[in-house]
């Protein structure tokens, strides 16, 4: 086929410009913001004074929220991985002709607003809601214990909101597995459990790695669940950044926190991918 030498560039240009100006350059703006003179304000304007102490201030004041974000996101990701694996495995190997229906059901929650669904959780976990009533009847919860405004509620919300991001890549990976490999393990006298650990799980690693990242990253930055289902004791770093930007107008600290979160996440992702990569080779 004849093709102009520059056609590729012309086709790519508009999208590349948009992402360049509104995605790449903003990172520099954010970095500049994190080095603002903290004395500045929306009214008097800001100066970049290479005020590196912003980072020290941000970390000193908001280390709790930062640590809590990573902790909650980590727990939510592990729970998502377990639940997501069960569901993806059931769809890939056990669902038969219900496979497509189940897949549609997995993405269906996306069709309703994230916020409306999270508010719905607030209602389910409410103090006079059926979940609390049920647990109190079983004496698993005391009369005055509550679910709302606890880490349990926030983590349950995170798990719920990001579970489809775990299920879909896992399913994509599991579905590609040649079933004959699993059968071969059985033929060679491997127990089903051993076959799973030695064959199915390693082959589904790419999906598990992708799913983990797609769950962990948005969970760590989320503040909707912490705000709607938690109390001030469950504030995550996202709540702080949002608050500093939109209410307090403390751009310097907000910028420094945002950069810190990004750096931590990138570092964890790189480490994790390396580790997962070597495990695959073993």
């Amino acid at each position: 086929m004849r093709r102009g030498r520059f056609t590729g560039y012309w086709l790519m240009l508009p999208a590349a410009l948009w992402l360049g100006v509104f995605f790449v350059i903003p990172f520099y703006s954010l970095l500049a913001t994190s080095l603002y003179d903290p004395e500045g304000s929306v009214l008097t304007g800001y100066d970049v004074t290479w005020h590196v102490a912003n980072f020290a201030d941000a970390l000193r004041e908001h280390a709790d929220e930062l640590w809590r974000s990573l902790w909650y996101a980590g727990v939510a990701t592990v729970i998502c991985a377990v639940l997501g694996y069960v569901l993806a495995y059931a769809i890939a190997f056990k669902a038969g002709r219900w496979r497509n229906v189940m897949l549609v059901l997995v993405i269906a929650p996306f069709f309703t607003s994230f916020l409306v669904r999270t508010l719905s959780w607030k209602l389910i976990l409410a103090d006079d809601g059926f979940v609390v009533d049920f647990l109190q009847t079983l004496h698993l919860m005391g009369e005055d214990d509550r679910l709302l405004a606890t880490p349990v509620a926030v983590i349950a919300g995170l798990v719920y909101n990001f579970l489809p991001f775990m299920v879909l890549p896992l399913y994509a990976s599991l579905e590609k597995i040649d079933v004959r490999l699993i059968e071969a393990a059985g033929d060679l006298y491997a127990s089903p459990a051993r076959g799973f650990w030695k064959v199915t799980l390693p082959l589904s690693m790419p999906g598990l790695v992708a799913g983990t990242l797609l769950t962990f990253i948005p969970s760590a930055g989320d503040y909707i669940n912490a705000q709607l289902l938690g109390s001030t004791n469950q504030r995550m770093v996202g709540n702080v950044i949002q608050d500093l930007f939109t209410n307090t107008g403390d751009y310097a600290t907000a910028g420094a926190l945002s950069v810190t979160l990004m750096v931590i996440i990138v570092a964890m992702v790189v480490l994790y991918i390396r580790k997962a990569g070597t495990e695959e080779l073993l």
């Binding site: 903003p26 913001t33 770093v237 979160l261 990004m262």
Partner: peptide, 11 residues
Amino acid sequence: PEIVMGSSLLA
């Protein structure tokens, strides 16, 4: 994370 993209764009 959305919070980082959002705050970058705001910056």
